[in-house]
Design a binder for these strands. Structure first.
Lengths: 126, 126
DNA sequence: TTCTTTAGTTCGTATGTTTCGAACTATGGG
DNA sequence: CCCATAGTTCGAAACATACGAACTAAAGAA
C-alpha cells in the first residue's frame, strides 16, 4: 500500500482542480469539507446528496481530490482525517475556489429539491 | 447533420463548465475567445499552445464548449463564427469565469516557456 | 447545373478513464 | 492472536476521448 502522496503547492494545476471538482460527488464532498469546523473521515461521505457511494468509489474520489491538491489526508489510528488545502490554493490561485463554491451554491439554491426530476427537457435551444 | 444546439442559460451547470475547462486545449480556446474583439472561426485554433490539433478533434472540442454553454456558434457562409457567452454566464454564476481565467493566466505566467520539459519531478510530496 | 474548394461534422476504432464488488491491508482493542 | 473497523487495490464492465477516413454544407467558377 503506497503511503498517500500529496502534490506540493507549485505542482497543483488549474486543470487538475477543475477536473476534480467537475464531478458532482467530489464537488459535494469538497464543499462540505470546506465549510467544516474540523477534519472529516472518508466514511462520513458514504451518503452524499441523497445517494449511496460504494466504499471503493469513495476511496477513488478522495484519491482524486488528494492528487489534485484539494485535500490533505492523514491517518489517525484506524481512520483518515481529511482537510482542505484551501489556504495554500488561495495563495496560488486567489479567488478560484471561493468562486467555484459560490457557483455551486447558486446552482443548488436554484434547484427546488434533491428529489428525482428529469431536468424538464430543453425547450428553446437556439 | 444536426443543427447546432445550445443549452438555455438555466440548463448550464457548474460541473459542465468545469469539465469543459479542465481540458488544456479547450481552456486555451476559451481564453482566447474571451479576450477576442470579434468572433473566431474554428480553424483559427488548428494550432493551439504550440501543438497541432486535428480538425476532427477540434470539432469535438467546440461541441464540448457549446454543450457546456460556454460558447455560441453560428454559421456564416462556409465558416463558423464562435463567441463566448460570458455575459449570460456572469449573470448566472458571477465571478466564476473571471476567476478561472485569472487562475489560468497565473499558471501560465509561472511556467517559463511552452517548450517540452518534464515538470521537474515532485521532490517533497509529504 | 455541375465541378471545385474550403470549413466543419460524423463514424469507427483504439486507447484511456470511471465505477463497483471482491479481496486485500492497516490499525486498535480484547 | 483474533476480530472489527476504515480504507485501499484489483479486475472487469461501462463510459469517454482522440484521430483518420469519409462525409455534408456553402460559395464561387466554369
Amino acid at each position: 500500500m503506497r503511503p498517500l502522496t500529496h502534490p506540493s503547492i507549485e505542482d497543483i494545476t488549474v486543470e487538475g482542480i477543475l477536473h476534480a471538482l467537475s464531478d458532482p460527488v467530489r464537488a459535494a464532498i469538497y464543499a462540505q469539507l470546506a465549510c467544516a469546523e474540523r477534519a472529516n473521515t472518508c466514511s462520513a461521505f458514504l451518503q452524499v446528496e441523497d445517494r449511496s457511494i460504494p466504499k471503493s468509489t469513495l476511496s477513488q474520489h478522495f484519491r482524486a481530490l488528494r492528487e489534485a491538491g484539494l485535500v490533505r489526508s492523514e491517518r489517525h489510528g484506524v481512520e483518515m482525517l481529511n482537510t482542505t488545502r484551501c489556504g495554500e490554493i488561495e495563495q496560488r490561485f486567489p479567488g478560484l475556489l471561493p468562486a467555484i463554491l459560490k457557483a455551486h451554491s447558486i446552482q443548488s439554491a436554484g434547484r427546488p429539491k434533491p428529489s428525482r426530476r428529469k431536468a424538464a427537457a430543453k425547450p428553446k435551444a437556439g
